[in-house]
């Protein structure tokens, strides 16, 4: 019995060791990034990440947020942060708005051409934006939407992920609810606002988090459609961040890493704080 108990303990220790190793693997690289934001650039250039914590956080933060480079002088960190929020929130909001309405029509209405609409919409799930990136660029160019928020956000909405998600969710809501609502004399509009939206609150929140993170982290599309520096998002600006490290005599590691840190902080915070919603939304969409 004693040997059995000891073996159990040993396996628990091994389990924790593996989990701790995994957690360190996730955290340590980012901690190095954070450490470098506290050091003067000269030391960063010479020694790279180290164990010491410097006093440069405030100056590096100020440089990252308020100093601009390029020709226009307007792509400060503040500006890019604002653009990132516009992209993340605009994308999440647009996606949910379009998706919920379409899913409502598909699930709760008897229509002609229902299956045709269904197929037209869900075929878009098959091809990610990346494979049709250049023609999409040309379309946006032809519509005169380069370097605008519409041109940045709307083409990203052109797929049915949220629609599919809400369709699955609406179908899991008991049918008796619609019957009851109809008997009580509620029309489709009242049913939508008074019953469906309150019921889907958690799902909407989960979807919002997932879509916000997805929109915030977009890189290829913003790289193509925004060429004006005032339109850059933080993630789009990363390219300049790496170029900053190439060109200068003393590479601005403090500022560059601070910008990278600012770029990951909001989505990471949201994912951590709203973890249970986020996980629920993510794994629900699998079904």
């Amino acid at each position: 019995m004693t040997t059995h108990k000891r073996r159990l303990r040993l396996s628990t220790v091994v389990d924790h060791a593996i989990l701790i190793a995994g957690s360190l693997l996730m955290i340590v690289p980012v901690l190095m990034l954070v450490q470098m934001t506290s050091m003067p650039d000269l030391i960063n250039m010479k020694t790279g990440p180290s164990l010491s914590i410097g006093d440069q956080w405030v100056p590096n933060f100020e440089k990252a947020m308020f100093q601009a480079d390029g020709f226009s002088g307007i792509n400060t960190g503040t500006r890019m942060l604002m653009n990132s929020f516009i992209l993340g929130i605009g994308f999440a909001f647009g996606k949910i708005f379009v998706g919920m309405l379409a899913a409502y029509a598909i699930v709760y209405f008897r229509m002609r051409y229902a299956s045709l609409a269904f197929w037209i919409i869900f075929t878009t799930l098959l091809l990610p934006l990346e494979v049709r990136i250049l023609p999409s660029y040309e379309v946006v160019q032809r519509l005169g939407m380069l370097n605008t928020y519409q041109g940045l956000i709307i083409p990203l909405i052109a797929s049915a992920t949220a629609t599919f998600f809400f369709r699955q969710y609406f179908r899991s809501i008991p049918e008796e609810l619609v019957e009851a609502a109809r008997i009580d004399g509620a029309g489709p509009v009242r049913f939508f606002f008074d019953i469906l939206i309150p019921l889907s609150r958690t799902m909407i929140a989960a979807m919002f988090i997932i879509m916000f993170v997805y929109g915030w982290n977009q890189y290829l599309w913003p790289t193509m459609v925004t060429t004006e520096e005032g339109m850059f998002t933080l993630v789009r600006g990363i390219k300049q961040i790496t170029q900053m490290l190439e060109g200068n005599q003393i590479p601005e590691y403090g500022r560059a890493n601070m910008l990278a840190l600012i770029a990951i902080l909001p989505p990471v915070m949201i994912v951590i704080f709203f973890q249970s919603w986020f996980v629920k939304g993510l794994t629900e969409s699998d079904k």
Binding site: L19, M26, N217, V235, I238, A260, P267, I270
Partner: peptide, 11 residues
């Protein structure tokens, strides 16, 4: 183990 999900690929 999950938070790195939110880190953008270029970062």
């Amino acid at each position: 183990l999950m938070w790195v999900y939110a880190v953008a690929p270029p970062v």
